[in-house]
Amino acid sequence: MTILLAVLLGTAFGFALEQAKASNPNKIINMLRLKDFHLMKVILFAIGFSSLLLFLLSSMNWIDIGHFSIKISYSGVIIGGAILGIGFAVGGYCPGTSIVAAGAGRKDALIFILGGLLGAVAYMLVFGIIKDSFLFNKMGGAISLVETNPLKYEALINNVSALFVAGIIAIVFMLIAFFLPSGNEN
């Protein structure tokens, strides 16, 4: 059953990313160059829309709060993000979109994936050396802005309804998506 769900959801995710043009490196690079906000609008709207429904459904107990999965905040999240950002800008792919783009027949995506597999090996080899360094200094641990699953995670804002705060953030994201200019480059 889980495997069937993996096939259905994975295929849907790949299909959605390709339809949204997120697997097109031209769109990614021109978004980062601040020339074409199409993908920025897509991403902001997707985050806002899914977040609003997520907190709405979990406030009605329709979504099991055990499904929330808050990652730990530590200094390596920012530094790793910054390293990723260099490759993201030059290549125009992130891990997920490279896989989708390869499926759509893009050859540079295949090369990106090979580079990625080597990068992941390199990380596996250096992890033992860096694991006790400043890169893993905690910055609050597994923490979210609003309450998600109080048994497992802490929240920064505790005394206001999670749906209310998350809902406002979600609506702001969607509004920015609406008001950002559409790009005219293809």
Partner: peptide
Amino acid sequence: YTFVAGFLVLFGARLAGGCTS
């Protein structure tokens, strides 16, 4: 360049504990 970009993206993603998704 794409090969090197892939290397940096996955190295960075593993250090960060996740990627764009």
